[in-house]
């Protein structure tokens, strides 16, 4: 009925957070990496503001299509009070607290997994660097 409001609200918060983080962020670190045995290239570590943008995109995209589904089922109307379930606030709040929170939590968990994997790949590239330098010196 109104479950998409929770991820949409999270999207608003993360969008503001992303802008604030980007404003304070310093230039990203650059590392030299070797792709597929080819020559060494310079690569930038992904700044955290860009990683938060991944979460924004997931939340905004999902919320938009879910909002469309609610319009499809007649649960969202273009006139006040916009949500047909607003006549039953207890039911609406219950759905937001269960399905809505679970949606936000799952999307955030998936994003955290993506951040962990990308950080691991970046750290591996940085750690491998001295070994490559030694090989180059030899």
């Amino acid at each position: 009925m109104s479950c998409f409001i929770v991820p949409a609200a999270e999207a608003v918060i993360t969008t503001i957070a992303a802008k604030a983080i980007k404003a304070k962020e310093v230039a990203p670190k650059t590392v030299e990496v070797q792709f597929d045995g080819a020559g060494v290239e310079t690569a930038e570590k992904i700044p955290f503001s860009r990683k938060i943008k991944w979460l924004n995109n997931l939340l905004w995209g999902g919320s938009a299509l879910l909002a469309f589904e609610h319009i499809w089922h007649g649960e969202v109307t273009p006139w006040f009070p916009f949500l047909t379930a607003s006549g039953e606030p207890a039911q609406m709040l219950h759905e937001m607290a269960t399905t809505g929170v679970a949606m936000s939590a799952l999307v955030t968990c998936v994003w955290l997994g993506m951040v962990a994997v990308s950080s691991a790949i970046e750290n591996r590239a940085v750690k491998a660097q001295p070994v490559k330098s030694q090989v180059a010196e030899q």
Binding site: C3, F4, P7, W54, N57, L58, L59, W60, G61, G62, S63, A64, L65, L66, E69, T99, A102, M103, L106, V107, V110
Partner: peptide, 13 residues
Amino acid sequence: WIYWGASLMWLVD
């Protein structure tokens, strides 16, 4: 991003 976001949310649903 759009489709994966919606897929995850519909999965919860």
